[in-house]
Amino acid sequence: MPEQLSFDLPSVPALGRADFMVAPSNAVAVAMIEAAPAGKLVLTGPEGSGKTHLAHVWATKAKAQIISSIDLNEADIPALAQRSIVVEDVPEIAGDADKQNALFHLHNLVLAEDKALLLTGRGAVRDWGITLPDLASRVAAAPSASLELPDDTLLAAILAKLFADKQLTPKRDLIPYLITRMDRSFAAARGLVDRLDTASLAQKRPISRVLAASLLDNEAKSAR
């Protein structure tokens, strides 16, 4: 029987997604999401850190609609404001006056209707590039939940889950090896598992530490 990996981590269910794993690097943000919805909340974090996943968790609790910030100027703002709303990727509208104005009006109408508002984006709010002063001040005043880069425990669990999603069972020594060699992000974990799966199929070799070492060494040489 293949060896199975097990990680004793609690989880939060998400819309149509596998459980969101909780660890010290994201526990505060998860707790704030679970405590919502009420008023407004900002969720920040690096690429692939789980912002969209947690936004779906929040949206389920709030019975909220999810919209991308880049679609705001084409939306019916008064209609949107009749329910709680998630606006994803707010930094994407930096420098776009029309979309920032639409978000400003949506912010005010949602709260006036006693609904809840969640805004997501990479990095600190001060770096989002919001140029509309009234909007910038309102976003800055919102409570902020921040997702951090994963620690070893969480990164190991994510790698195990990504392998399991592909019905792959890596050798027990592979994940600890990968953690010491890879970039510390969810996006990097996802990409690495995809590349290992592709290499395994192409070379007709099992996913192992030997295959991983060959892949990473070749990628390092190509990057020079």
Rank of each mutant, 00 (worst) to 15 (best):
T153M: 08
T60N: 10
D151H: 07
S69W: 13
G123L: 08
S222R: 15
L155I: 11
D217L: 09
R205I: 08
L174P: 08
W128Y: 04
A136D: 10
V28E: 15
F104N: 01
T153Q: 12
R195D: 09
K166F: 02
A36H: 15
I130N: 01
A157Q: 00
S49I: 05
L178A: 00
D127L: 12
A94D: 10
S84L: 00
L154G: 02
L5N: 06
R181C: 11
P91L: 11
A199W: 10
N73P: 05
A157C: 01
S11L: 07
L117H: 02
R122P: 07
A27H: 06
K99T: 15
L41T: 02
G191S: 14
L72Q: 00
I67G: 02
A141L: 03
K221C: 10
E92K: 15
D98Q: 13
L41I: 02
D194V: 11
P10W: 01
A81K: 00
T60G: 13
D173V: 11
F104D: 01
S208C: 07
R172F: 12
A124V: 12
T153K: 08
P133D: 04
G123C: 08
A29E: 03
A212I: 11
K115Y: 00
L147V: 09
A112S: 13
S68H: 12
I130W: 11
V193S: 01
Q4S: 14
L178N: 03
I33M: 08
R205K: 15
A220S: 13
V210Q: 14
P37Q: 02
K221L: 15
Q82N: 14
A55C: 04
A212F: 02
I158C: 07
W128I: 04
A97Y: 09
V12P: 07
K115S: 07
E74Y: 06
G191A: 14
T120R: 01
A97Q: 07
A141P: 11
I66A: 10
T198E: 13
T198G: 06
V210W: 08
A64E: 03
D127I: 11
D183H: 11
N108Y: 00
E34N: 15
L119G: 03
G16Q: 14
A31Q: 15
A141E: 12
K51I: 07
K51L: 10
F20G: 04
T169A: 13
D96I: 12
T44K: 04
K61T: 12
N26Q: 06
D183L: 13
S208H: 10
A112C: 02
Q4F: 13
H105P: 01
D127W: 11
D71S: 11
P143V: 06
A23K: 01
N218M: 14
M182D: 10
T52C: 02
D173A: 08
W58A: 02
A141N: 01
E74H: 09
P24C: 03
A64V: 07
T44G: 07
D114L: 05
A79E: 14
